[in-house]
Design a protein around this nucleic acid. Structure first.
Length: 508
RNA sequence: GGCCGAUUCGUCUAGCGGUUAGGACAUCGCCCUUUCACGGCGGUAACACGGGUUCGAUUCCCGUAUCGGUCACCA
C-alpha cells in the first residue's frame, strides 16, 4: 500500500502511436508525477508478425515531443532491463512452465484447423460461447487428454504447442477499478487463454502480468478495451502467487469518432481532415505518409491540454493548464467513465490560445523561413512585426505567413465588389494626395506617424476619412478587409506603399 | 448473440439528495475595430425512458432503451 508509485506505458511497435495511446501515456505520466512516482516505458513486441521497423523510435520521439519524460525503460535504461519483451523470452517461459508444473496451465497441440472445427461445431450446437474452456478442453488435443508419455514425446520431437491457462469453471473474479469501482466477472466467461504461443513468445496476457510484477508496477492505467480481460489478469496474478502485490487497475474511457458510432480511427481523421498521430509517419512498406499533429502546426502544450481534458476534469472552471498545473490537479478518481468524442475544433481553439501566448520572437523564425522559402527577403525584425500584427488572428503558426500575403505581395488584382462600391472620385483624390504627402514624408515611417499624415492630408483635401478608408485599403492590398492598415504599411515600408498607391491609380 | 461497461446542452464537461442545472468549444446577437479577424459582453441549447427509495431525485436502487468495448497462437 505504501510502496512508491510505479506506472508504465506499454505500447506495441506496430505502427505510429495513435492519439488515444498518447492520452493513455499522458494520464500515466500525470498520475506518476502527481504521486511522486516513476514512469516506465516498456515495448510490447511479442507479435513478430505485426512488428513495424521504426515504430519504436517513433514512440520515443512522440513522447519526447509531447513532454512526457520516461524515468525507466526503453530508451533510458533502468534496473529492470531489458524493457523490450522480445528480449525477455526466457522469463515468460519460466513462469509458464511453473504454471504447468503447478497444474494451473497445460500444453495444447491443436492445429488452427482443429480449433476452427471446434468453434464451428459449438456454434452449430447453439452453445452460448464457442470457446476453449473447462468444458471443451477435455475434447481437445492437449496434455489433459493425452497420455503423459505422448505429450513428452511430441514436445521432444519438436511438435508445435502452446501453453493454455487452466481457467476454473465456476468462480467469481472481482477487481476494484480506480475509475469504475468493483467489476465482477464469472470465470465461465473467460476461456483457456493461450499464454505462450507456439513460437515460444508469450501473449500479451502473460507477458504483461509477469513484467508488471517484476518491474514493481503499482498501477495499471490503460484503455477500456482491456476491461474485459482484466479478470483474466487477476486470475493470472493469483495463479502466479502474486495477488498480494497485484497492481491497481484504472481503465480509461475510449476516444470516439467525431460523429457517428464507434471509436476514433485513422479513417475518421482522414475524413475530417485532421491528424490522428502525434508525428508525421511514413509507412516503411507502402511509403504512404500520414500527417502528424506536430507537422500540422499543433503546439505540444496545446495538444496536452486538449487531451488531458478529454475524459478528465478537475471540477473547476479553468480551461488552460500547463503540464505542471495538470500534474498538480490530476486525480485518477475524477476520470470520466464514458467515452469522449474527439472534437478537433476544440483542439484548434487550444492551439489558438497557446499561439496567442507565445512571445513574438519565438514565432518569428517560422515566418521568416516560410517567407524565404517562398522567395521573399524577410529580416527577423520584420518577421517579428508581422507576428505581432497577425498572431492573434490565427490557430496555427504557419497561418501567420498566409495571413501576411498582402504584406509580401503587392496586389495584382483588386476585389471587384469593393472597387464597384468604393472606388469613386473622392477615393482617387484621396489616394493621390496621400501619395503626394508620403513622397515628401521624412522621419520614422511608423504606424502613428502614417496615421497622422493620412488624417492631416484628408483634412486638407476636405475628404471624410471614413468614406475612403476601404478604398485606401483596396488600393494598398487589393482587398476590402484585413489587419490594421497603418501597421501593415509600417511593415511594408514607405517606398513600397507609394509604389502600391501609384499602381492602383494607374490600374483602376 | 454472450459477457462487461457507459448514458447531463450539437461536442468536452461541472454536479456527488434540495442549484434560476455552472463552465468551455461550436453557433447566434451586440459592442470594439472608420474594414475583417482577435477580443469583450450576452443569447439559444441538456439531466435517455419507466418504476421504486425518499418530505424531496440529475444525483441512490431496479428494469427498459440506446451507445460502446470485448469474445485470436493481436496487442
Amino acid at each position: 500500500m505504501s510502496s512508491p508509485v510505479r506506472v508504465r506505458f506499454a505500447p506495441s511497435p506496430t505502427g505510429p502511436l495513435h492519439i488515444g495511446g498518447v492520452r493513455t501515456a499522458l494520464y500515466n505520466y500525470l498520475f506518476a508525477r502527481k504521486m511522486g512516482g516513476k514512469m516506465l516505458l516498456r515495448i510490447e513486441d511479442t507479435d513478430q508478425n505485426r512488428f513495424v521497423p521504426g515504430a519504436e523510435e517513433y514512440i520515443l520521439e512522440s513522447l519526447r515531443w509531447i513532454g512526457i519524460e520516461i524515468d525507466e525503460g526503453q530508451g533510458v535504461g533502468g534496473p529492470d532491463a531489458p524493457y523490450r519483451q522480445s528480449e525477455r523470452k526466457e522469463i515468460y517461459q519460466k513462469e509458464a512452465q511453473r504454471l504447468i508444473d503447478e497444474g494451473k496451465a497445460y500444453y495444447a497441440f491443436d492445429t488452427a484447423e482443429e480449433l476452427d472445427a471446434m468453434r464451428k461445431r459449438l456454434e452449430q450446437a447453439n452453445a452460448p460461447a464457442a470457446q476453449y474452456n473447462a468444458i471443451t478442453r477435455m475434447q481437445m488435443r492437449n496434455s489433459l487428454t493425452m497420455k503423459a508419455d505422448d505429450v513428452k514425446a511430441r514436445i521432444e520431437a519438436g511438435d508445435p504447442f502452446v501453453i493454455r491457462l487452466k481457467t476454473p469453471r465456476k468462480e467469481e473474479v472481482r477487481l476494484n477499478d480506480l475509475i469504475r469501482g468493483w467489476v465482477t466477472v464469472h470465470s465461465s466467461a473467460i476461456d483457456d487463454k493461450v499464454l505462450l504461443k507456439s513460437d515460444g513468445l508469450p501473449t500479451y496476457h502473460l507477458a504483461n502480468i509477469v513484467d508488471d510484477h517484476l518491474m514493481g508496477i503499482t498501477h495499471v492505467i490503460r484503455g477500456e478495451e482491456w476491461l474485459p480481460s482484466a479478470p483474466l489478469h487477476v486470475l493470472l496474478y493469483r495463479y502466479l502467487g502474486w495477488e498480494s502485490t497485484m497492481p491497481q487497475f484504472a481503465h480509461l474511457p475510449l476516444l470516439l469518432k467525431p460523429e457517428g458510432n464507434g471509436k476514433l480511427s485513422k479513417r475518421d481523421a482522414d475524413l475530417g481532415g485532421f491528424p490522428i498521430f502525434p508525428l508525421q509517419w511514413t509507412d516503411p512498406t507502402t511509403g504512404q505518409v500520414a500527417r502528424g499533429f506536430r507537422e500540422d502546426g499543433y503546439l505540444p502544450e496545446a495538444l496536452v491540454n486538449f487531451l488531458a481534458l478529454l475524459g478528465w476534469n478537475p471540477g473547476t472552471e479553468q480551461e488552460l493548464f500547463t503540464m505542471d498545473e495538470l500534474i498538480a490537479t490530476f486525480d485518477i478518481a475524477q476520470v470520466h467513465k464514458a467515452g469522449a468524442r474527439f472534437d478537433i475544433q476544440k483542439a484548434q481553439w487550444f492551439n489558438h490560445q497557446y499561439i496567442r501566448q507565445r512571445p513574438d520572437s519565438e514565432l518569428a523564425p517560422t515566418v521568416q523561413q516560410q517567407a524565404e522559402a517562398a522567395g521573399f527577403a524577410c529580416s527577423l525584425e520584420k518577421a517579428e512585426k508581422i507576428v505581432s500584427l497577425l498572431k492573434g488572428r490565427v490557430n496555427f503558426a504557419h497561418e501567420i505567413f498566409t495571413e501576411a500575403s498582402t504584406i509580401f505581395n503587392a496586389p495584382t488584382t483588386y476585389d471587384e465588389a469593393i472597387v464597384a462600391a468604393k472606388w469613386n472620385e473622392d477615393a482617387i483624390r484621396a489616394v493621390t494626395v496621400f501619395r503626394d504627402a508620403l513622397q515628401t514624408f521624412d522621419g520614422d515611417f511608423v504606424a502613428d506617424a502614417i496615421k497622422h499624415t493620412l488624417s492631416d492630408t484628408m483634412q486638407q483635401a476636405g475628404i471624410k476619412q471614413g468614406k475612403i478608408m476601404q478604398a485606401m485599403r483596396l488600393a494598398l492590398t487589393g482587398l476590402g478587409a484585413g489587419p490594421d492598415l497603418m501597421l501593415t504599411l509600417e511593415i511594408i515600408g514607405k517606398d513600397e506603399t507609394i509604389k502600391r498607391l501609384e499602381n492602383a491609380l494607374s490600374i483602376l
